[in-house]
């Protein structure tokens, strides 16, 4: 990898100042994605700013009954945290299946949300695709079995790689972004961006001199949630399609629903048709069936990934059943 300078600030404001120190600067969390990108010459920063010691790594209750999670919290801590397990179980479950024990012990919440795509063309230096300033997406008419079936009208056919992003959108989380000149809060659903020719080189709205410092979860209310990942292997792999459902309940029936799909689109994908058909229904097997059917309406598979329609339907169905407390 190319040589770089390294700084290890101990607080947020020093870290934010270091991001503006000139040249290409990248924040380094657990390094589970960035180090591999440096080795493959996908990213050649002049300076790395370690943010593990600078950012918060706790989960703390907010005044209105929600939970505020520091971006430096590691994935195994999310998976085991009693409050997250109790109130946001789909988030704990998503964290528990990321990568391997080694990755979960070093990888952070911020890193999981901001990792770059796993597309095999993107990951090879030789393929200069739209995301690297080139003039084509090699997956569009190439090996695209793991690429998108929704939101793929734009220039890039990637699927978003983050497992945590999907339950966070489903729970209505917000992200705190900070820079040396201020801070802002963005809804998780608005943080991730569908690729256009103007935005294709990034997957989100984070500026180069900003850090995602906290994830803020609202009070869950009377909800039931479920999460299901369809995998080729049982562990140690990215899911091929997955879903989180969060159902606001009114007795035995569903008041409103959030159904969010992962690994099928360049962003966490809201399945709004599925949300509509669940509204007002009893939470039962039939609800799971109709939600699964509705979730894949409008899918536009590429040449090699039509199979994702079936497994996405299954993921939604089983996530609804999981929310109903059934073992799936």
């Amino acid at each position: 990898m190319k040589a770089f300078a390294y700084v290890n600030p101990s607080n947020e404001s020093d870290a934010l100042a270091a991001l503006r120190s000139g040249g290409i600067v990248r924040p380094l969390g657990g390094g589970q994605d960035l180090l591999a990108r440096l080795k493959d010459y996908l990213d050649e920063p002049d300076r790395l700013v370690s943010v593990k010691g600078a950012l918060n790594r706790e989960a703390a209750a907010t005044g209105d009954g929600g939970l505020r999670i520091g971006a430096a919290m590691r994935l195994f801590e999310v998976a085991e945290h009693p409050e997250i397990l109790k109130r946001y179980p789909a988030l704990a479950e998503a964290a528990s299946t990321v990568g391997s024990p080694q990755i979960r012990h070093q990888g952070t919440v911020g890193g999981n949300l901001n990792q770059r795509p796993r597309c095999w063309y993107f990951r090879q230096e030789e393929f200069v695709c739209f995301k690297k300033g080139g003039n084509r997406c090699f997956a569009a008419d190439g090996e695209n079995q793991y690429h998108s079936i929704f939101g793929n009208d734009g220039p890039s056919k990637i699927v978003h790689p983050s497992s945590l992003a999907v339950p966070l959108v489903a729970y209505g989380a917000r992200f705190r972004l900070a820079s040396a000149s201020g801070e802002r809060e963005v809804a998780a659903a608005d943080y991730f961006t569908l690729p256009s020719m103007q935005t294709v080189q990034k997957e989100n709205v984070l500026a180069d001199d900003e850090l995602l410092t906290h994830v803020i979860l609202p009070a869950p209310g009377n909800v039931r949630s479920g999460h299901y990942e369809v995998r080729f292997k049982e562990s140690r792999d990215w899911p091929m399609a997955f879903a989180t459902v969060v159902l606001a309940m009114n007795g035995p029936s569903i008041d409103s629903a959030r159904v969010v799909l992962g690994a099928v689109a360049p962003v966490p994908w809201r399945a709004e048709d599925a949300e509509r058909v669940l509204r007002g229904r009893l939470l039962d097997d039939a609800a799971a069936d109709v939600a699964g059917e509705a979730a894949v309406r409008g899918a536009k598979p590429l040449a090699q990934n039509a199979y994702k329609i079936r497994i996405t339907r299954t993921a939604v169905k089983r996530a609804v059943l999981a929310a109903a407390g059934r073992s799936v």
Binding site: Y6, N8, G31, L35, S50, K52, I103, H105, Q106
Partner: peptide
């Protein structure tokens, strides 16, 4: 931790 995905300075 994987020592190949970590810098010695970390």
């Amino acid at each position: 931790a994987r020592s190949c995905l970590m810098l010695a300075v970390q």
